[in-house]
């Protein structure tokens, strides 16, 4: 029985069929992978562009970047500090989730955008102190509403920059290219 099947598969039509099946499997696989990499929608369509446009500094809402490992998401009290004085907050459909969250006292479930895997220990402070600007990694926030990553944060990209930063300084390179600098 298997012999008949193989014989059929060997003829041109069979090969096409096999090709179609394989193609389908691989497209489904690719789509599946694509799906796993998709983040779900943000609870609030937060317009970074608008806020930066008002001249608000990144560090006003994300002060952790200058002090410690994580930049942090501002507390709802901080959002509300400005927004309760803005008339539009009461009416805008976009801002309804914020109003609702503050009034009901439930935290907003933000979807993280810029993130590194669990096995990477990233420290914002060192990068800010080394003179990196926020947009060097996170892109130009005047151009986007919801934050997007301009590049994938993979190790090659990190190391490229680390090597550049070290320049000809061997000791610095040892430190910046050391596995133990990020992985522990």
């Amino acid at each position: 029985m298997f012999k008949r099947l193989f014989d059929w598969l060997r003829q041109p039509l069979g090969l096409i069929a096999v090709g179609i099946v394989l193609l389908t499997v691989f497209s489904l696989a690719a789509y599946g992978i694509f799906l796993t990499q998709q983040s779900s929608a943000q609870p609030i369509q937060f317009p970074h562009r608008t806020h930066v446009g008002f001249g608000i500094q990144c560090l006003y809402c994300h002060p952790g970047a200058a002090r410690g490992p994580s930049a942090g998401i501002p507390s709802q009290a901080k959002c509300w500090g400005c927004h309760q004085q803005i008339a539009k907050t009461q009416t805008s459909a976009l801002l309804a989730p914020l109003k609702q969250a503050v009034e009901s006292g439930t935290p907003i479930q933000w979807v993280p955008v810029a993130m590194v895997p669990d096995f990477v220990q990233f420290n914002h402070r060192a990068h800010v102190a080394a003179g990196q600007n926020c947009e060097d990694c996170h892109g130009d926030m005047t151009l986007v509403t919801i934050a997007e990553n301009p590049q994938v944060f993979n190790m090659g990209w990190c190391l490229d920059c680390h090597r550049k930063a070290a320049g000809e300084d061997e000791a610095k390179l040892l430190k910046l290219a050391d596995c133990g600098t990020c992985h522990y």
């Binding site: 096995f119 990477v120 050391d178 133990g180 992985h183 522990y184």
Partner: peptide, 11 residues
């Protein structure tokens, strides 16, 4: 080389 330790890189 920087810290003179034996590392275990989990990833």
């Amino acid at each position: 080389q920087a810290e003179q330790l034996n590392l275990q890189v989990y990833n």
